[in-house]
């Protein structure tokens, strides 16, 4: 099985792109120069629209005292609270651990919900699930169902998790379950899209062999296609765990008790050294997850 794309460890690129699906139909090559000029012109136009050229002077004149203090604080993150706290407040390290625990727990809850919906949706989004003979009268219905599943996945994905969170906050108030659902919906859409591509890319030989010896579609899927794709599916789920940790941290800016909340509060109180402690804790958590998932991917290639 071609695994060239796995070796590039580039989960941030969708599977469909790694071995760029190239149709055999010859079309005139897009003139590279026109494309380059268009790209640069678009970028300049966007920058002008935002007033980036106009305000770059303001950027340089920004109050640099705060920036300097912020950067200096990076070298000495706080090991204890920077200002007096009421008696009985747990020590800082306990607060950091609690932030880490709750970030991980929001990420895990969101991701497990997302897997429950995303995995079945991924199967429905796979082309191979709906494969039908050309003249089969059911082909049209299959295509409609496939399109429906794909559109559902695309719609879930197109609304950012923070926007889902804003909706749920307004509808249900600040409940942890609402936060987990806000994470789960767009993640289910993304998982469905990538899972369907991985299932379609799985080695066809085992599936063919089973189908030609009389196995039903469902049997061939369960005994051949799914097991073949399972390592890749698992590895991708791990990559999404890493992303879920980042998203869970950001949910803190909406008041959920994750690391984002601690970061926002530390900045409001101008506790810059504490802020760096939380930032380092977040980086440590994400980097640990990154090492874990990239170790899995490397093992897949070997």
């Amino acid at each position: 099985m071609p695994r060239s794309w796995t070796s590039s460890t580039a989960w941030s690129t969708p599977p469909a792109m790694r071995d760029a699906p190239i149709s055999a139909r010859g079309r005139a090559p897009a003139p590279a120069k026109i494309l380059g000029v268009a790209l640069i012109a678009t970028a300049l136009l966007a920058a002008a629209h935002l007033g980036l050229f106009r305000t770059s002077a303001a950027l340089l004149q920004a109050e640099h005292g705060l920036l300097g203090r912020f950067l200096a604080a990076a070298l000495c993150p706080a090991l204890d609270y920077e200002s007096a706290v009421p008696a009985g407040t747990p020590p800082l390290w306990q607060k950091v651990l609690e932030g880490l625990r709750s970030t991980a727990s929001f990420a895990l809850a969101g991701l497990s919900l997302a897997l429950c919906f995303g995995a079945p949706l991924g199967i429905l989004c796979a082309r191979s699930t709906w494969r039908a003979e050309k003249h089969d009268p059911r082909a049209l219905a299959a295509r409609a169902l496939w399109l429906g599943a794909r559109s559902l996945a695309a719609a879930l994905r197109s609304v950012h998790e923070l926007l889902w969170a804003a909706l749920f906050l307004a509808a249900l108030g600040a409940s942890p379950l609402a936060a987990a659902c806000a994470l789960a919906l767009p993640y289910a859409g993304t998982l469905a899209k990538v899972f369907s591509e991985l299932l379609d890319e799985a080695d066809e030989r085992a599936v063919r062999a089973l189908e030609e010896t009389g196995a039903s579609r469902v049997q061939a899927f369960l005994a051949a296609r799914l097991p073949t794709a399972l390592p890749d599916l698992t590895a991708y789920a791990f990559y999404r765990f890493e992303c879920a940790l980042r998203s869970a941290a950001v949910l803190g800016f909406f008041g959920y008790p994750t690391l984002g909340l601690l970061i926002a509060q530390a900045f409001e109180n101008q506790h810059l050294r504490e802020l760096w402690t939380y930032l380092y804790a977040l980086l440590l958590l994400v980097l640990l997850a990154e090492r874990w998932s990239s170790a899995l991917r490397r093992r897949l290639v070997a």
């Binding site: 699906p21 190239i22 149709s23 139909r25 079309r27 090559p29 897009a30």
Partner: peptide, 11 residues
């Protein structure tokens, strides 16, 4: 992206 990869193949 589909157009570009076709073009790349063409090259």
């Amino acid at each position: 992206r589909a157009r570009l990869s076709v073009a790349r193949r063409g090259n």
